[in-house]
Design a protein around this nucleic acid. Structure first.
Lengths: 233, 233
DNA sequence: GAACGGATTTAGGCTGGCCTAAATTCTAAT
DNA sequence: ATTAGAATTTAGGCCAGCCTAAATCCGTTC
């Protein structure tokens, strides 16, 4: 039956991906943060960190977190590429919704060969973004650093495009989808309540053109936008 | 990250699939046969058999082999369905060749959800056979028992259709492919050498129409045919 | 019917990856 | 400077699955 594994163990790949994600939102990845994302107990993370650092995939400064080595980052980006190509493929070729596709990709990313991933990428025309707007790393590990800001930081009066949604929770995604808020939507920020209150936007380009939407602060932190121009009113 | 597994463990599924395959070529599955297919040592098989029979998936008569229970057969057929749908999908939608598709499906079958498999089946128009001609079990575990006979047993003068190739070895499949021998090909048996010698067929319908092919005995045992009519001449 | 050889199982060990409980280290507040 | 509390690591265990070496069983042959 000779089942040649496609990369590192599933668990190892999940750790690398998680560490990559935590690093890219600033600083070294802390044990407890990794534990929380992966839903395992902190000592399990300590144990895995030891193995990862013996394999040269991370560097560990005891009690102060872990950083990917170049080899580790490369491996992590390969997993991220797989994941995002898979999500894009499942969504555009097999009718998955953007809220349900994450879970399926989560399992397939560890089983799909590079060959399969490249075939899918080819069939899709080598997409640059996944269904949530996240950039897809290239085959050789380049990834675009998005120059977006959270909706919560866009000033009233500005016109912006929703580029990326920073959450995979199906409920959140379904809710946003029902509001028509997917990457590519263009809108103007028309109001913002003080004290971390909700933000009101007016949709300019989308299926729900010309509607106003009120978005809570929490949600507005997840919506990454590209500010297009300033509405001089 | 909450990675809900999609069925039994990968290892368990491989054992069930293997036992199913051995049972369907007669009698109970022997420890050594399972060990050989899975490329593990016999004691590993003994160990797994104990776990499988504790889970009610097989029945074990010590020293005389193992049989699937109904639950075990159901689980095995689900894996077989996944595998064959995947092979068909990869071949017809992503350009895989019939000789390379087995390995990829071998890994994906443990990661793909039923939902994904049904979407693929739908996209393919619910195919009944995989690229090698093997019947695909239905969603609820029905599988067609093919009424084919091996080429080696077809009499000279008979016309038959190649229905199924009983091997997944890439070299074998590439060779057969080069000869144009894939399921669907219609041919007449025009000669057979004595003493387990080679068999000569004349291709009637295929890309290689009207050519003669000489096929060794070993190979001819792998080619499962449907005898169509007798050439009276 | 005794003994040999092959198949099978038991015994005992290893690794990866998870856990809880206990010990340690760091930080921040007094 | 001390110390409480949080974060982390160490200690020690468990299970799945694999391994090798040794014991056992079965069928067959003399």
């Amino acid at each position: 039956m000779a089942e040649t594994p496609v990369g590192f163990s599933r668990s190892t790949e999940d750790y690398l991906k998680t560490i990559y994600g935590l690093e890219s939102s600033g600083g070294p990845a802390l044990t407890s943060a990794i534990a929380e994302v992966l839903e395992v107990a902190p000592p399990s993370v300590s144990g895995m960190i030891k193995r990862l650092s013996e394999s040269g995939l991370v560097e560990h400064a005891p009690y102060r977190g872990v950083q990917l080595t170049n080899a580790g980052r490369r491996a992590a980006l390969r997993v991220v590429r797989r994941h995002r190509i898979l999500e894009t493929y499942l969504t555009s070729k097999l009718g998955y919704d953007w809220d349900s596709v994450h879970e399926e990709a989560e399992r397939l990313e560890h089983a799909a060969s590079d060959d399969l991933i490249e075939r899918m990428a080819m069939a899709l025309g080598n997409p640059q973004y996944d269904p949530h707007g996240a950039p897809i790393p290239t085959k050789d590990g380049e990834i675009e650093e998005p120059e977006t800001i959270a909706l919560v930081d866009v000033a009233v009066g500005e016109i912006a495009e929703l580029r990326m949604v920073g959450d995979r929770d199906p409920d959140v995604l379904r809710y946003l989808g029902a509001l028509g808020l997917k990457p590519g939507v263009l809108f103007e920020v028309v109001g913002r309540q003080p004290f971390r209150g909700p933000i009101t936007i007016r949709v300019i380009r989308s299926t729900k053109k010309d509607t106003d939407q009120v978005i809570g602060n929490e949600l507005a932190q997840l919506l990454h936008c590209l500010v297009t121009e300033e509405e001089v009113g």
